[in-house]
């Protein structure tokens, strides 16, 4: 992929702001539009852009399978765990009022954790689905510099899409 120097450089420039924006959407969702779902998608977009430019082999080095697959479950478990915590602390399931001394603080904490759970699951699922689609789960593949084989497909539409961009 050393041919596309403009694409590579702009991807490297774009990724940090995309991720920062995702975090902003995640943790500012109480005050403005946004929340866990959108933030997870945007955070995944950073990884997808990376995959489009650098290929799935290197993407799997950045987001290895042992991170993304468990993370799918971690988000749901965090969400359900907040519900269990409220049960144990004497409230109803997912009644955040009991999480702190002040009901408002409890609600705030509960919503923050729950949205974080949604964000983690959405991010992990989106990245996993995308990497599964491009057919490279990084199990049995060796590192390869040739873009076509790094993609694991000879006539990948995404490679053609990049060509279309360039033309």
């Amino acid at each position: 992929m050393r041919l596309y120097s403009v694409l590579r450089t702009s991807t490297k420039l774009l990724m940090p702001p995309i991720m920062l924006f995702a975090l902003y959407v995640q943790f500012h969702g109480d005050y403005g539009p946004g929340g866990g779902f959108q933030a997870g998608v945007i955070f995944a977009v950073a990884f997808i852009v990376f995959t489009l430019i650098f290929g799935p082999v290197r993407a799997r080095q950045v987001a290895p399978r042992w991170v993304t697959t468990p993370m799918c479950a971690v988000g749901v478990l965090l969400y359900a765990g907040v519900g269990l915590a409220t049960l144990l602390m004497g409230g109803e399931y997912l009644n955040y009022n009991v999480l702190a001394h002040d009901p408002h603080h409890g609600q705030h904490l509960g919503i923050l954790l729950v949205e974080l759970g949604v964000g983690i699951t959405v991010w992990a699922v989106m990245v996993s689905i995308f990497l599964a689609f491009v057919g490279h789960d990084g199990d049995d593949e060796e590192e390869d510099d040739d873009p076509a084989s790094a993609w694991g497909c000879d006539e990948g539409t995404l490679i053609d899409a990049r060509e279309d961009d360039r033309a």
Partner: peptide, 15 residues
């Protein structure tokens, strides 16, 4: 009053 966040959509969705 009950939930708190200024973005009502978040209160409805998450709480």
């Amino acid at each position: 009053v009950e939930v708190g966040p200024p973005n009502m959509v978040t209160s409805v969705l998450a709480s």
